[in-house]
Amino acid sequence: MPPETGHTGASPPASGVNRGAGQARRSRWLMIRRELTGYSLVAPALLFLILLTVYPLMRTVQMSFTDLKAGEWIFVGLEHYREALDDRWFWNSVRAVVAFTVPALVLHLLIGLGFALLLNETWFSTGLRNFMRGLLILPWVFSTPASALMWALLLHQTGPVNYVVVRILGQSAPIPFLAGSPRLAMSSLVAINTWLSYPFFMIIILGGLQAIPPELYEAAKVDGANALKRFRHVTLPQLRTILLAVTTIDFIFTFGQLDLVQLLTRGGPLRRTETITYYVYKTGMLDGNLGYGSAVSTMMLLTLLVIIVVYVKLLSRGGESGETSF
């Protein structure tokens, strides 16, 4: 980046040719001072973030090469990694996190997009529409423990869902959603996670829809495109960037989700909902095997880093201005 520091501020760039040398030195000094002011404003936040995220991350990596033996930290090299790759429960947790993340992501996207499209239409009453929008964001306000409890009551043996299942759908016995078959437990977790996450998709996609110029739709209408064609050829291409951004971020959040599993199933039944995040928590925190947990964390980090770097690269190709694109 060229060192033209006095870009937007009060002091205009004053390095003219026909000015005196003293003036040039002065303006150079002003430029340096200006830049220093900028750095000193960024520094507190940056130091805070480095101390609280980058440094601990490096400690995770470092810890993954060590083991606690009789109160001493000893260096064990790649021992934990070798152990993990041979560990069937590690692979079990990889499988579980995929089985959780993929359907959850699809559901977040479909429900979020669906509501966004409905709320973007013209309604007979804008007030009612905005009210519905406000109501539909509400699940986002609830903490995971609060929603886990809500759903535990909802899916209870004698809860309303099981009432519908037994009396109206005619099943012979109530379904133990979270403690029965592993598949059912996983589906319940995905459903609860979707309930908590769709508002995020809905808000962001709605913002994207509102930014599409109406002229595009009118032009498509003139060309005789029906609603479905307009969606495919106008809406989807226009939303592409936002969908990519929101899906990437959501993928990482969903992948890193621990709360629900920790609260509702603790990895069960038959350890089939033991996602990789829960496995890190279990080995590292519950069993106290910090070195092994760190090794699994580090492998997770490496996988995520690939995704993050690809995403940031895609983003920075978009423009040189460093524009906000979430």
Partner: peptide
């Protein structure tokens, strides 16, 4: 700022780190 863009992208990267990776440290 020189390096401002790199810093901003770095911060975006930090935004994406799941908490689980940091609980042990």
């Amino acid at each position: 700022l020189r390096g401002g863009r790199v810093m901003l992208l770095g911060i975006l990267g930090i935004l994406m780190i799941p908490r689980i990776l940091l609980i042990i440290p």
